[in-house]
Every structure is written in C-alpha cells, then in structure tokens.
Design a protein around this nucleic acid. Structure first.
Lengths: 289, 289
DNA sequence: GGCCACGGTCCGTTCACCGGAACGGGTTCA
DNA sequence: TGAACCCGTTCCGGTGAACGGACCGTGGCC
C-alpha cells in the first residue's frame, strides 16, 4: 500500500512556472522582460524563489487588473510556489490586509489600495494636476489623461472621462508603450536621445495598422513635436480614436509627464483643443515650481 | 574599547512601534503611536516580528502620506527591526520596485502604486462613480467625495476638487471617522444597528466644537437621515465647511458607499444641491446593478 | 582630535520556513 | 455505488534562509 513511487516523478517540475510571471495587464503587448535568450534561463526565476519576498511577489502579482478573485489553486499555478507555501503566505497577507478572503478565493485587499496611494511623488503630482484635468474635461467633454514615464512605457497617473467617454485600452496605473501613444511621444520628444534608442531597441510592434513602426518616421515625428510643442496621435492605439498631447514641465524646465485629450477622430478638434491643453500644461508646471 | 554597555539600554526600545500600526495620516488626530505608556508593552508587536512579513509590514507602513522619503536609520527607528535586517529587506523591496532609492533615502515605489490600483472592487467602483462626480463638480464647482466604509471609518475612494476647492483634511485613500463626516453618517444610517453600537463603543471624540459626540443626538441624526435620505454635516470636521451627503445603493438595494459635496458653509446651497446629489446617486446605483 | 550617527557589510547561530504527505469534503465520471 | 479527481487545509521533520551583534569607513559637529 502507498507505494511511494506512485507519485509520478515526472509530474513534479521543480518549478512549474519558472519565468516569474507574465503580468501583462493593460494591453496585449506586455513587452516581457526583454529577450532573455537561451531557454536555460530560468535562473532569475529559480533563485528568486528561495526568499520569502521572492515568493510573496509572484503571489501578489498573480493578480491582474481583471482578476476579481483567485482560488488558492490558481495562485499556486501562477506563482509557481508549493501549495502549502502559498497557503501559509496568503494567510499572513490576509491578516495584514493586503489580501482578503471572498468565500474560498482571495482578492487584493483594501490596505493595498491605501498603501498604493501613499506613494508620495505620484500623490503630489495627481493633486496638482487634477483640477486642470477637470478644466479640460469641462471644456472638451472628452477623456483626459495624465501620464508619467517609466522604463519604455507611459504609466497613467490619472484619467477622467465623461459619460460618453472612452473607458478601455487605458486605465489608472495602466501601461502603454511610449512610441505609440500621444503622451508617450510627447515625453519621448523631450527626453534624452538615449531613451529613443532604447525604445527602438525594445522593438516597435504595430497595435493597429496606423501604428508608426518605422524608427525613421518616429524620429521625424519627434522632431516635429519639438518644433510645435504638441502632438496628435491618430488611431495608432485604437481605430477611430485620436489623442492630442503636450508635455508638462515643472517650473517650465523639468519634464514630469504629459497631458492628453482623447476623442473619436471625427470629434477631435485639434486646433481648438490645442490652446486649452497648452494652457493647462503651463498652469500645472507653474503650480509645481 | 567598544564597551558593549555604551549602547544606552534605555534608548533602545525594542519596539518603537508596538501596536502594529496606528495608520493615522489624514487628520491631526494621529494619536502618534499611543502615549509612551508602560514600556513593557511590546508583546503584541514582538511575536509578530518573528516572520519575514511581520518585519516587512512595519517597514512599508513606516511611510505615511506625508513622508516623501525616509532614511535607513529612520526606518529602523519606526519599524523596530534590527538595522541589518531593515537594510537587507529594503534592498529586496527595491529590486521588487515597492521601494525606490533617492540618494541615501528610501521612498515608496511606483510599483506599489500600480499594485494598489489593481484592487478590483475599488477600481470597478471608482470607474463607475467617476463620471457622476464630474457632473457634480461641473454643477457645483465644489469638492466632491466618494467614500466607502471600513471598520469604524470612511475611506475616500475618490475625490475631485476645482481650483478653488478644499484640499485638506481628506485625501484619496484617507480615513475619517464614520460619526462626524457626511459620508460616514449616510453610511451609518443605512447600516445594521450593530455598527452604530461599535462606533459608540469606539468613542466619539470631538474634532471641532460642533462635532456631535452625544450618542443620543447622533442616533437622532441617523433617524432623520433615514427619513430624508440625505444628510448635511456642518462644521463637525472643519470650521467653516459643510458637507451634503447621500448613500449610494447598487441596484437600489445594496449599500456600497456615499457621495458628498463639500463647500464653505456660506456657499453651501443644500436645497439646490440635494436633487443633483440624489440624481447622481441613483445613476451610479443603476450603473452598478 | 574625539565623538557620534550614519550606511553598509560580515559571519556564525538558529529557528522560521519549506514542502511532501496525508486528510476530509465536494464533484464528476463509469 | 464507488473510484478517481481536485480542492482547501493541516501536520511535521530537515535545513538553509534569515537574523542581528559586531565591525568598518565616512562625514558632520563640538
């Protein structure tokens, strides 16, 4: 009885999920973690698992924005840690409040939301920007974004939209590539040239059939943006929609992010919106001085 | 040399932060970390410190909303863990992205903000509520709050304000007591009576000289709110300011939070704002059905 | 110069963590 | 009916990750 060999040895992959976790969210293009190279490369994932935080991380990051709640089994699958381990750590996270129980499932907890709002730089920026975004919403009745730069992406710090507005593709704290968004191009145009090189090296993948994927054309766009101080991105992210964006400089000098108006192409009054957008950006910059 | 006794034993409180975390922020009534009191009381904190997460928690929660960055020494002081331990864990948190380095100091990282925005329930709610808050801002040009209930507090899920608006006392993800805020009273009025008992047992402390701290008067207020479906809180949190609030019911039945308009008392047009507020709450409730 | 606080590192000890195994309950098949 | 499966949960012995006192180099202050 209980022949120990009945546990199929082959079924035990030391790491079912060697490569940490995809953690895509936002759009489809998760940009992975650069091209890793030979598949022998699960070291980064493997040796990151022999610390407690190295296990907590894939557990918490198992949750995407679309997951309301995950079962223990699902957490085990996504995190790659042993079941007993996930169970124990999840319990500890529940007592902390970073996770909450919902029947038998786990969901991200209110305390995580609270902690996330304590991040200082983002909070200060949001509070400074928000009234100006309201102004733009009032004037345009279109979706307004404020984005900052991180690695090869823009991260949306805030987003407001009217009832008729667009609520897809982007969300607060969501990421989209620098090269194909209005805010991203605005930031890219006023960043050191090395960032442009990195973006190109990272690969320009088309999102729609209008996405600019030629480095030359992208560079020309950026030159033009620097001349005009504003950029109109048209249907590069979603067909039928365009974004008008400007960079925001604290005190008129330091680039801190970009502000944009997104609307269906047929409603996009670029000429009319431009001055409002520029004015708002100047106001924000002054209040951040 | 290096007499081990030179480390003043009295200066070393094994736990500067014995009571888990007060998590004050928001208002002045932070109660610090309780009165120093009997120093023998680090038990509750002590046994929570023999796990890794038990140390990471006080480290991360050392940061309040007002701390831009903390030095290693300050983290050691607030968390109560050993220096080498804090150093090691902080480094690990930096590679994760939950912390970032700023010169020699540490600050909360962008990744923490991103994780916090993935909390599903709050995200869904905010996205549903936000356009209606814009409407109210447009109509009133005053500060608009949406709050949910947690333990004995309200937690502000979102807050928008115009240029002339009030940006103090409350902030997104900040907490204020149920018994003295408009949103809190609205929620309290439509919650099970046991919550009222808990609130009273938790103590009604006056914030201003207008704060209602008599359980009897509070109960009478709640009865009145249930009759009228709306509440006007006047100067209970901050002198010179009033809030008009209504509860929000998903599908017209399930209490999910409360919506409020905050304005200087002299500008508060309660009669005029009431219908707008009620209409918005109904709209939100319907969109959540 | 002496002193102190700070950030950072080392290293021997030990106990918290790990994870295979087993349990009980629920559901799905033959 | 019961065997097979998946689930969440608990147990427990071995072990290596985590711990923290001690130490180093530095910079600011008397």
């Amino acid at each position: 009885m209980k022949a120990p060999a009945d546990v199929a040895p082959a079924s035990h992959h030391p790491l079912a999920h060697p490569v940490a976790h995809p953690a895509p969210q936002g759009l489809v293009l998760s940009a992975h973690r650069a091209a890793p190279g030979p598949e022998s490369e699960e070291v980064g994932g493997a040796d990151s698992m022999n610390s407690v935080l190295g296990k907590v991380r894939p557990i918490l990051e198992s949750f995407t924005s679309d997951d309301a709640a995950l079962s223990l089994a699902e957490l085990v699958r996504r995190s790659g840690a042993a079941k007993a381990t996930v169970h124990r750590l999840a319990q500890e996270l529940v007592t902390w409040g970073l996770l909450e129980r919902e029947g038998c499932d786990y969901r991200l907890g209110l305390r995580l939301f609270e902690l996330g709002q304590r991040v200082h730089r983002q909070r200060i920026l949001r509070e400074a920007v928000q009234p100006y975004m309201e102004d733009l919403l009032l004037i345009t009745r279109e979706t307004i974004h404020f984005a900052i730069h991180d690695s090869l992406d823009v991260v949306y710090l805030d987003k407001i939209f009217p009832h008729r507005g667009l609520n897809a593709e982007s969300r607060v704290a969501g990421r989209l590539p620098l090269y194909c968004t209005g805010t991203g191009k605005a930031i890219l145009a006023y960043s050191p040239p090395s960032l442009f090189v990195d973006v190109v090296r990272g690969g320009l993948k088309p999102i729609t059939r209008h996405t600019v994927i030629s480095p030359g054309r992208l560079r020309a766009q950026l030159d033009r943006i620097r001349e005009e101080g504003i950029v109109l991105e048209s249907e590069e992210i979603r067909l039928g929609y365009a974004s008008l964006a400007v960079p925001v400089f604290a005190g008129g000098t330091t680039l801190v992010g970009a502000l944009s108006i997104t609307a269906p192409t047929y409603r996009m009054d670029a000429a009319g919106y431009a001055t409002a957008l520029r004015t708002a950006a100047l106001g924000i910059g002054r209040s951040l001085a």
